[in-house]
Every structure is written in structure tokens, then in C-alpha cells.
Amino acid sequence: MDLLLILGAALWGGAVGLLVPRPAHRFSVAPDEEWQTQCPEGHPIPHWVGWARCRQCGGRTYGPSTPLVALATALVCAALAAATGTRPELGVWLLIAPLGVLLAVVDFTVQRLPDVLTLSLAGASLVLLAGAAAAPEHAGDWLTALYGALALGAGYFVLFLINPNGMGFGDVKLALGLGAVLGWYGWGALLLGTFAGFLFGGLYGLGLVVIRKAGRKTSIPFGPFLITGAFVGLLIGAYAA
């Protein structure tokens, strides 16, 4: 049963991951620009949902690599299924995981975390976890998820006030959703996931400095590392629950 669950989660992640590159391309614009409505060759993109492939370009793809994004989403969903098992919160993780992948791709591409995505992650996480809390055999606590969202959001907001160049306000909004999913499994998972995010981001920045691709004051996309750290904390929290 566990193997079937993991395979099913991987198939779900792979299928949904195929649809991530199109919105990733559309969201990957500067903060003062409208959402992208054209492929790189200037042909219109009529909808938000669908493969990132332009018929007028002879089926040429655009945006981030579709196979790579689909594979990454499949692996994320499979890992969450392996750690969570058949508990009801797994449905929540599988629904919001593609949104986390989308946020990471957009931020890594243009260093932007769109409000429509970060606030959707926060709202969806709390609403869906409320449903999971009402189901039998769940392993988390909804109130702690709420407190986790508020605590991590407040903590990141303080960091933003101290150093706006190091912590963007988009990261503050992202923290609401990440705090909710980590807080579901308790304060230990929240602290672990947060520490892992800062660790991954710090190692990435240090690596860029070492290979002389960046200086000490170079801005880096922090969201992907916060999301990755939360993913690690969530896996450990789910496994230990």
C-alpha cells in the first residue's frame, strides 16, 4: 500500500508539474510590469493553464524546463507521501506542493514572490489544514499551524525591518504559508525548517562568493531556499509524528 501511495503521489506531482512552467513564465516579470502574456517570440498565451508550448512557434516550449520541473514536483510529492503515509494531511501537502515549486521557480528566475501566490499559499494551507484537523487519524494541530504562521511571519517582518536588502517583503508573506505547514507538526519542525532554509541560502550565497559569481552585498533569491528548508522540516516532522 505504501509503495502504491508513493507511486500515486509521484504520478500526481509529475502530471501537475507539467503545468507549472506556463504560469512560471507568465509570473516571471519585474515587480512594476504586468504579467507576461506572450511567448518569447511575441505570440499570445491565451490561458494560465496548459503546457508551456507555443503552437505558432511550431510547438516550441518556453519558460523553465518542463521535464525538469515535472520531475522535481514528482519527487517532492513522492517524498511527502513516503514521510506522511495515509494520514489526511497528505492531501494538503500534495495540493500545495506544486504551488511551492512554482514560487521557487519564479523567485529563482526574477527574484520576485508574487502576492497572489504567497498569500494563496498561506490561505490555502490554513483552510486545507482545518479540513485535515477535522478528519480522523491526523497527526498535527491546526492552532499550532496558525500560531506558526503568525510567529514566522512576524519574525521575518522584524528581519525585513532590520535589513530590507537582505530580506524582501515577499519573503515575509511567504513565511505565513511556510509557518503554517511547519507549525502543523509543532514548534520543533518550525525551528528545524526555518534553520534549514537559512542554512541552504547561506551556503548558496557563500558558494557564489567563493567562485566569484557574487559579492557580499549581492542580492540572491531567498525564497527557493526558504521553501527547500521548509520541505526538509516538513519531511522530518511528518516522519516523526
Rank of each mutant, 00 (worst) to 15 (best):
178 L>G: 07
115 D>Y: 11
111 Q>N: 15
113 L>I: 12
180 A>Q: 01
170 G>P: 01
148 G>H: 03
159 L>W: 09
156 Y>C: 06
126 L>A: 11
138 H>S: 12
165 N>P: 02
144 T>Y: 08
139 A>R: 14
112 R>D: 09
155 G>V: 02
175 A>L: 09
153 G>N: 04
142 W>H: 14
155 G>C: 08
140 G>P: 02
176 L>R: 00
129 L>G: 03
109 T>V: 06
109 T>H: 12
114 P>I: 05
175 A>W: 01
162 I>H: 08
122 A>D: 06
116 V>T: 15
142 W>E: 10
157 F>Y: 14
172 V>Q: 00
176 L>V: 04
142 W>Q: 11
168 G>V: 03
134 A>W: 13
143 L>M: 14
133 A>S: 14
166 G>V: 09
121 L>T: 04
121 L>D: 01
130 A>W: 13
180 A>E: 03
111 Q>K: 15
115 D>A: 14
167 M>V: 15
127 V>Y: 05
116 V>L: 14
150 L>I: 15
174 L>I: 06
123 G>L: 13
165 N>W: 13
138 H>K: 05
147 Y>K: 01
148 G>Y: 01
118 T>R: 04
123 G>Y: 10
162 I>L: 15
150 L>T: 07
114 P>H: 05
153 G>S: 07
124 A>P: 02
113 L>W: 06
180 A>K: 00
173 K>N: 10
152 L>F: 08
110 V>I: 13
135 A>H: 10
112 R>T: 02
141 D>H: 12
174 L>H: 01
128 L>R: 06
131 G>H: 06
149 A>W: 03
120 S>V: 11
148 G>W: 02
145 A>Q: 01
126 L>S: 06
139 A>P: 00
129 L>D: 05
165 N>R: 15
155 G>K: 05
174 L>C: 07
159 L>T: 05
178 L>E: 03
164 P>G: 06
152 L>Y: 01
132 A>S: 12
182 L>I: 10
158 V>N: 09
158 V>Q: 10
141 D>G: 07
113 L>K: 00
125 S>W: 04
168 G>A: 10
109 T>G: 01
132 A>T: 09
175 A>V: 07
113 L>F: 05
132 A>Y: 08
143 L>N: 09
121 L>H: 06
114 P>L: 12
149 A>L: 12
149 A>M: 11
124 A>Y: 03
165 N>I: 03
178 L>D: 01
131 G>W: 05
147 Y>E: 05
133 A>W: 07
166 G>C: 08
150 L>P: 08
155 G>P: 08
154 A>G: 04
137 E>M: 08
158 V>T: 11
121 L>S: 05
128 L>V: 09
177 G>Q: 00
138 H>D: 12
119 L>G: 02
140 G>K: 09
129 L>N: 06
119 L>E: 07
153 G>H: 00
171 D>H: 11
142 W>I: 15
108 F>C: 11
156 Y>P: 03
132 A>H: 06
110 V>Y: 09
